[in-house]
Design a protein around this nucleic acid. Sequence first.
DNA 1: ATGGTCGACTCTCGA
Length: 264
Amino acid sequence: MKTNNFSIATFNVNSIRSRLHILIPWLEENSVDVLCMQETRVQDENFPKEAFDKIKYNVVYKGQKSYNGVSIASKHEINDTAVGFDDLENSPEDEARLIRCIVRDIPIVNSYVPQGRALDHMYFQVKLRWFERLKDLFERNYSAYEPLLWCGDLNVAPDSRDVYAPDNHEDHVCFHEDARKALENVKSWGFIDVFRKFNMEPEQYTFYDYRIPNAVKRHLGWRIDHILATVPLARRAEKAYIDISSRLAQKPSDHTFLVAEFVL
DNA sequence: ATGGTCGACTCTCGA
């Protein structure tokens, strides 16, 4: 029976208006229940909602001019949408990086974690703090013993399998020990890496830098996009996989689709 | 070898 199946995907679109030619056909073909998007890079008044209306997807979003921006699309009703953190530090940028909702009674948190720029940059501290604030948000609003999905571009490769030439990237903001520990600390609240549950091999990447020639062919990528689930949901996961079609397309995104499927 | 390419928007920035 199909009725108890639940599928979710995450995709850093790197400008949603420039990626509709990939995004809309992909949704029609893959028909996931939920798609979490990051880096929409569009203000709310200019969000291409009609494209989702046409294929019968509901969509919620929060963006900023030129940078950041997050969105969740679903074939189902989207309930209890909220943006940003529920803390005193919350800023407009946070709201364009964090959106959450409930679909089919499953809470979904979609985040575009700050990249950090450089180890000695103030923004790297902002990044580390972001993971602490996420953990606080999970503790305040959710239970590790109930279904919950945390998806998005987390800008961290969790271990040495998740980046090419790991020895050369120990001082990179997406692989530095402090960044990996910050992610690990949030995971320790009660998340399972759904992709890793099914795929143990190294070199399975969700991001390939535009600036590296033939990065896909040469396996020069990063696994920085993630789908994490609390234990009661993770144990219902059936499969998870990376769909690289978006990186191979004409006018590709630098990120791929990441998909997870559950039997509820 | 320490670059490269995109996208949005100014003539540069962020990834």
